[in-house]
C-alpha cells in the first residue's frame, strides 16, 4: 500500500458517500444517471467475485464490501425509493454501446483466458467508461448540482491517483499491469473536460453550467 493508492481509495469512498448524502439529504436523484450507477454496480460485482476466495487484508475486504453494498444501494435508491425524481428522459445513453465492446475486448485482450480473469478484465474496461452516461446526461441538461460535481471530482481524482500509484509500484515494487494502467488513463482522460469546468467554475463558487 502507498499514499497514492490510499488517498485514491479514500477519494473513491468519499465520492460514494457524497452521492449517498446528496440523495438522502435532498430526497432526490435529480441529475443523476441511473445507468452509470448500474454500470458501477456491475463493475464491483464482476471485480469482487473473489471477495470470499481471495483474502488480501482486512482493509481490502472491508472496502470491497462497502463498495459493493453502497453501489447496489445507490441503484436501489434511484430506481425504487426516489424513482419519482429520476430524470429518465435525460438519462438516455445506450448502455449496450459500452457493455458489448467491453465484454468483447475482455475476451480478446486479457492476461489469462479464465472466467475470473475475463470478468476482472471486463470490470476494468467497464469502469473506464461507466461515467459516460452521467457525463452525457450533464451535457444534455447543461448543468449539474454542486454536490454532484463534487462527487464527480472525487470519482475522477481516485483513478488519477491510482495512475500515480501504478507509477510508484512500477519503479519501487516492479509491479505493473498494462490493462489496468491503460484503462485507468482512458478513465481519467474522460474526466479532463469536467475537471476543467470544475476548477474554473465550481471552485469559483459558480454552479457547474456547460456552455450552451
Amino acid at each position: 500500500m502507498n499514499a497514492f493508492r490510499l488517498v485514491g481509495d479514500l477519494c473513491h469512498l468519499a465520492a460514494i458517500v457524497l452521492l449517498l448524502l446528496k440523495i438522502w439529504k435532498s430526497r432526490s436523484v435529480a441529475g443523476l444517471s441511473g445507468k452509470s450507477q448500474i454500470l458501477f454496480g456491475l463493475v464491483f460485482v464482476t471485480r469482487y467475485l473473489d471477495l470470499v476466495t481471495n483474502f488480501v487484508s482486512p482493509y481490502n475486504t472491508i472496502m470491497k464490501v462497502f463498495f459493493l453494498s453502497s453501489s447496489i444501494a445507490t441503484v436501489y435508491l434511484i430506481y425504487t425509493k426516489f424513482k419519482a425524481t429520476y430524470d429518465g428522459n435525460h438519462d438516455t445513453f445506450r448502455m449496450e454501446f459500452l457493455l458489448i465492446p467491453c465484454a468483447l475486448l475482455a475476451i480478446v485482450v486479457n492476461h489469462e483466458f479464465s472466467p475470473m480473469e475475463i470478468l476482472w478484465t471486463f470490470s476494468i474496461y467497464l469502469e473506464a467508461v461507466a461515467i459516460l452516461p452521467q457525463l452525457f446526461m450533464i451535457s444534455k441538461t447543461g448543468e449539474a448540482e454542486t454536490i454532484t460535481s463534487h462527487y464527480l471530482f472525487a470519482l475522477g481524482s481516485y483513478r488519477g491517483l491510482y495512475i500515480m500509484n501504478w507509477l510508484y509500484r512500477y519503479y519501487y515494487e516492479n509491479n505493473f499491469d498494462v490493462i489496468a494502467v491503460v484503462a485507468g488513463i482512458v478513465q481519467t482522460v474522460l474526466y479532463c473536460d469536467f475537471f476543467y469546468l470544475y476548477i474554473t467554475k465550481v471552485l469559483q463558487g459558480k454552479k457547474l453550467q456547460l456552455p450552451a
Binding site: N54, F55, V56, Y162
Partner: peptide, 10 residues
C-alpha cells in the same frame, strides 16, 4: 493473506 491471483488493488 491467501491471494493466488496476486490482485491486491480495489
Amino acid at each position: 493473506g491467501f491471494n493466488p491471483s496476486g490482485k491486491d488493488e480495489l
